[in-house]
Design a protein around this nucleic acid. Structure first.
Lengths: 382, 382
DNA sequence: CTGTTAGCGCCTTCAG
DNA sequence: CTGAAGGCGCTAACAG
């Protein structure tokens, strides 16, 4: 930081205040002065100092985007959409610098990042992805969000359920400029329709590779799955659900475990498309064909799922739209939905990885021999 | 920002300076005082003000990561790896806040983001992905990088060639604390081995879906492709290369265009795995089997490529490793390679999407009928 | 070990 | 329309 406002002022033969006015464009300045100032700025390659500027009262231009995992396309697409809206930054409000922070799914890191953002006086924060279900964390988060909104930071929840109103109320102590806005996904409805689709195809022994335990998204999708089962008068068999994560390896292991527990499985719903890919790989390795022997379904409709082998039946979540809207909300360029909460639809996409259940006779004759039990996966504890 | 350092000091009955010392932990403080201060901090939910702190001399804890597109797994994986290294932030150097900025491939936005980071006094900046080949931009970028390093910001180039030494020298005017470090990928070598693999399988009419024009990565991969062709004494047919982008749609369109120009194509190398997926889709839509009729190869070995149909032959780039190393370099926790440049290997991964060229006879008999010329794609201009 | 004193670089009143 | 002055909240010398 060698060259300062004062340097520019000296070179242009004006006062620092004038330079400031030219740069912020908030005040009328004579064309001539303006030109000289701008030239001095260019010649000196002057760049406004962020901290000093922020300290002196100009708001920061940081917008925080919290994601669980940057390498996960779900968050990549979401974050890209948010950032796309903050945009080229040509806007008069000035360009915002998007700060994408990865929490790795850790509640503590979520809080830490939020503190960081608070420290930096972020203009807005977008929290993406499901939330941990721990009440303690929910309370801490509500408190942190309250501090943020009180300080004028706009908060948008994208892809998670709204905050508990009571927790939020308890956490609030000052006057929030703008209460947090929520853009939720209809995970439950989507999961229900997906399982209903499988049931309609005749499947009765459906395995479920759930998402990480203790997260709202996992709970919602599981609830939808059970809704569908219940609606068809089918008892939910707990052993047919194994926990996992949103990655391929997890889907692979979980599928093997499911097969061990119930070799006659005819369908598997995975936590998301990435896990579904792992499920497919495991099934294939065991000599099972998809969907002839076993149907597989994903969730999210991530970009690659249409090109998988076979193309994945899944539930499309409007990630792009959600991110873009969250971005607009963060910028204050969109009005909050009534009640501060909007639920975005989840659409069933039937492709090639699901099909009619095979008849029992065919099952007995088919590649079923490969599925003898007791493979001794070290993962039996679940 | 209601509660300040002074408030905490008052409540704890000490001076502001003491509070500052307790919080920064840089100076010895009595246990008792320390306890009272910490309690006051907790009770008031005090959070240090970033701008003020930075202005007063404490360095900023921002690390910028520039990527072309967050929704692209290539960058997602890279950015996640970098961020993973900045890490939980338990380290003594204190936690860094990673700022992931998406340039959308625009040189101007790249510069803009760097200015922003400069404004914020970023501790380090990691530039990922190929660079534009425009000399004007290279000069501007070199100048910007020089300003950054002069200000003490560490700069790491990850996945792009090193800066032109002359341009860098010309841009420098002050004393750079640490010159930029480069982690390059052996794109050319990888592409050469990939095409050589195809040639070894007997392919002679190889189509090439190139990456975006005017970018170093595109040029390097193309050069490698031509190296292999030349090494086998095969003339490069310009019409067999069509430009594209790193997305599925681009691969799809490009494959159709290639087929229009040369219906007897037996292999296609794509700009990357995502584009390869599009190529495969287009080929399938035209009734061609992979790899029996046409072999297809990708690049990068993105996470989904092993699960594609068929599993993609590709060139693995050590994205995870590169990102992690870039992160360590950014933190100053790794020593720069000799000469400031390290080239990371690109490994050929032969999977199922490439196979021996079909015999001419088989070609005549096979699904070739679908490939009649003159489909009139509007894209013939290239 | 702790309190006091100066700014960091800028923006924003106030005068002129 | 422009200059001068004050302070944003914190840290870094200095004293004590």
């Amino acid at each position: 930081m060698a060259v300062t406002l004062a340097d520019v002022a000296a070179r242009a033969g004006v006062s620092p205040a004038t330079v400031s006015r030219v740069l912020s464009g908030s005040y009328p300045v004579t064309e001539g002065t303006r030109g000289r100032v701008l030239r001095a700025v260019a010649e000196l390659e002057y760049v406004v100092d962020g901290p000093a500027s922020a300290l002196a009262g100009a708001g920061s231009d940081l917008v925080g985007i919290l994601v669980n995992d940057l390498a996960d396309p779900f968050f990549g697409v979401l974050a890209a959409a948010v950032q796309g809206e903050l945009g080229g930054g040509a806007g008069p409000g000035g360009e915002k610098l998007a700060v994408v922070c990865s929490t790795g799914g850790s509640p503590q890191r979520e809080l830490d990042h939020l503190t960081h953002l608070q420290r930096q006086r972020a203009a807005a924060v977008v929290l993406t992805g499901g939330a941990p279900e721990d009440p303690g964390h929910a309370r801490a988060l509500a408190a942190k969000v309250a501090r943020l909104t009180e300080a004028g930071t706009r908060v948008v929840l994208c892809g998670r359920p709204p905050q508990d109103p009571e927790a939020a109320a308890a956490a609030g102590r000052g006057r929030a400029a703008a209460p947090p806005v929520t853009l939720a996904f209809d995970n439950r409805g989507g999961a229900r329709r997906l399982t209903a689709h499988l049931l309609a195809l005749g499947h009765r022994r459906i395995g479920c590779v759930a998402g990480p335990a203790g997260r709202t998204t996992t709970a919602e999708r599981l609830a939808g799955h059970r809704d569908a089962l219940a609606a068809h008068g089918i008892a939910d068999v707990p052993a047919r659900t194994v926990p996992g994560a949103y990655d391929r390896a997890s889907g692979y292991d979980a599928a093997l475990e499911l097969l061990r527990r119930e070799p006659r499985l005819t369908a598997v719903v995975a936590a998301n498309d990435t896990a579904a890919l792992g499920v497919c790989a495991a099934l294939r390795d065991r000599g099972l064909r998809i969907p002839e022997d076993v149907s597989v379904a994903g969730f999210d409709d991530l970009p690659f799922s249409v090109d998988a082998a076979p193309a994945l039946t899944t539930v499309r979540l409007p990630l792009r739209e959600a991110g873009a809207r969250a971005g607009r909300l963060a910028l204050g360029r969109a009005v909050a939905p009534p009640g501060g909460v909007a639920t975005l639809p989840a659409e069933l996409l039937v492709r090639e990885s699901t099909g009619p259940v095979r008849s029992e006779a065919a099952a007995a004759g088919g590649g079923g021999g490969a599925v003898s039990g007791g493979i001794g996966s070290g993962r039996s504890g679940g």
